[in-house]
Design a protein around this nucleic acid. Structure first.
Length: 157
DNA sequence: GCCAACGTTGGC
DNA sequence: GCCAACGTTGGC
C-alpha cells in the first residue's frame, strides 16, 4: 500500500526545480527524531511525497516526489566539515537517517498554504496544525487525493 | 526582521 | 525528573 508524505524544504536551499534538474536526490540533514523515525522505519520505496516549499513567497506545495529506496544512515552526520555534522552519531550506530527521493512532477502552479488552510476538507491536516514544525510528516490518502484535485483546478462544492 | 511555538539541553 | 534557558522553525 502506498503511503503518502509531505517533506519541507526551503527553496533557497533546495527547490522543486533543483529536484527536476537532478531527477534524484538524497534527503539529508534531518535532525529531528520524529522525522527520522518516519524515514528510517516507515517510508517504503514507491511512497509518494508532496514537496513543500517553506520560508518561501508564497509557501506551499510545489510538486511531487517518490521515495526511491529504504531509509539509510545520513552520511552528513559523520562529516566534521558538514553543517549537519553530529559527533554523537557513530557509523556503527547511526543517529540520523535519510531517504533517496526521485522527481515525479512539478505542479503547474504551486498550491499556496493559504489555499490549503481555506479548504474544509483539509482541516485536520498535520501541516495546518498550529506551530507544526515537523519537516517530514504523513499525509492521509484522502488528503493526498484532495490536494491532487486542487492542483488540477480548484472547484468549489 | 519579528516573534510564537516548539524541541533540546543542562543545572539542580 | 523538573523546568528555565536557549536555539530553531517558519509564517507573516
Amino acid at each position: 500500500m502506498t503511503q503518502y508524505w509531505l517533506m519541507k524544504s526551503e527553496p533557497e536551499a533546495y527547490s522543486i526545480d533543483d529536484l527536476a534538474r537532478d531527477k534524484k536526490t538524497y534527503w539529508d540533514g534531518v535532525r529531528n527524531y520524529q522525522a527520522r523515525n518516519f524515514m528510517r522505519d516507515q517510508m517504503q520505496p514507491g511512497d509518494l511525497v508532496f514537496f513543500y516549499h517553506s520560508n518561501a513567497e508564497p509557501a506551499g506545495i510545489a510538486g511531487i516526489a517518490k521515495v526511491a529506496g529504504k531509509g539509510y544512515p545520513d552520511p552528513s552526520a559523520f562529516d566534521p566539515k558538514d553543517v549537519h555534522y553530529d559527533p554523537d552519531s557513530k557509523k556503527d550506530k547511526p543517529t540520523w537517517y535519510g531517504v533517496d527521493l526521485q522527481y515525479v512532477k512539478k505542479f503547474k502552479a504551486l498550491i499556496p498554504l493559504e489555499t490549503l488552510k481555506k479548504d474544509p476538507k483539509l482541516a485536520g491536516m498535520a501541516l495546518l496544525r498550529r506551530g507544526q514544525r515537523l519537516s517530514v510528516q504523513p499525509v492521509s490518502s484522502k488528503e493526498w487525493e484532495r490536494i491532487c484535485a486542487l492542483e488540477s483546478g480548484p472547484k468549489e462544492e
